[in-house]
Design a protein around this nucleic acid. Structure first.
Lengths: 204, 204
DNA sequence: AAATATACTATATATTTATACAGTATAATG
DNA sequence: CATTATACTGTATAAATATATAGTATATTT
């Protein structure tokens, strides 16, 4: 999409909020009132700019004839695979690991993601992650402390909080007092970060 | 309140169709054009009747100031509204309570559902329901013991486990030791079951 | 039998609203 | 350095629109 200016974004937001609140789009004067402009032409020029950039449509000669263009509205859901906690060696998305596929709109969790992971065990219980939940996993190596990561340590795949405690020391922390931290010394043990959690689905 | 005439229904449908098509409500003249009336007052009187029967609201002195009041079963397609924990009196799906809408495939949680509820508080923490989670709510009165229900007790809307302990006694049980059970005597206190949870989504 | 609600036509008008025109000012672009 | 885009104020006006008033006619309710 084209580059929207901060001010134009404010006008666009204002229109959306107005529609949500009242059920119909604002007039130029309404926008001025909401945003503190003193001339209806301020709104007018912003509207023309937004129209030119294809963010909105304006029905000419029509009061409140503004509609917001939502090109992503038609995002037919994509199919995402659901995988279990896969043993090492086997590629995560190999077909024998795919339990089934789930239709889910793109960008459902704000961020993109690659597959769903079926959770086993209760080691992340206190983070609200329960047995059989589906974690939306984004394959990435960009991990910050506190992220919930899908990590592979030698033979085991596990879901834990990530914390780098020292350049070569990573702690994988459960969210359940009955489980204990896993300390990984990167010089001794191979740690592969599969990705991180960007969302969760529970079916019941 | 519910006795809408066939002609009024046609006008109401016309308004809905017009909004779906254009993004904004019709004028009196638009309604006349759509339905073949020859006087704007034909539309006007129908609108007044619909307003009196509470099917629509009319913002006076405002062009296209029509909004439809009962979008109860309005999630055509796959758009589901997200609502907060709404205070009593206010209809759950009234537009002012709708935070936004979320595109979600039908039957995503196995069962049908009606809207998403934004969770506040941690009273169901041990059931893996965290603050800001979205609960998929199915509007139903068919509740079994152990179901997670959305209940309204007088002024408060709350999410809890449901347990009928005696014909007239219902316990609403939190999943968090720091919270205590709510005992409801149905003879003394009004309890309205909004629906039950059929799924959960977490965005992070 | 009278009052009320429904369902329209027809005309008129005050108000709302879109939109053009005339400026000022600043930042970015080529 | 000229041009263009952005971001405004201020004024004016034709067109769009809500809405009142005056009728006609039929059905439903009291």
């Amino acid at each position: 999409m084209k580059n929207i200016t901060p001010q134009q974004q404010k006008v666009l937001d204002c229109i959306q909020v107005y529609i949500n609140k009242t059920g119909f789009p604002p007039t130029r004067a309404d926008i001025c009132r909401e945003l503190g402009f003193k001339s209806p032409n301020s709104a007018e020029t912003h509207l023309r700019a937004l129209e030119k950039k294809d963010f909105i449509s304006i029905e000419s000669g029509t009061s409140r004839g503004i509609s917001i263009n939502n090109p992503e509205i038609k995002h037919e859901g994509n199919e995402y695979p659901i995988v279990g906690l896969v043993a090492a060696g086997s590629p995560t998305l190999a077909s024998e690991n795919v339990e089934k596929v789930l239709n889910c709109p793109k960008g459902f969790f704000g961020s993109d993601f690659d597959y769903f992971l079926r959770v086993r065990g209760l080691s992340m219980k206190d983070a609200g992650i329960m047995e059989d939940d589906l974690i939306a996993v984004k394959k990435t190596q960009e991990i910050k402390n506190g992220d919930i990561v899908i990590a592979r340590i030698e033979d085991e795949v596990t879901v834990k909080y990530f914390q780098r405690s020292a350049p070569n020391i990573v702690h994988l922390k459960p969210a359940n007092k009955e489980f204990s931290d896993i300390e990984v010394n990167l010089e001794e043990t191979e740690l592969y970060i599969e990705g991180k959690s960007v969302g969760l689905i529970r079916e019941n």
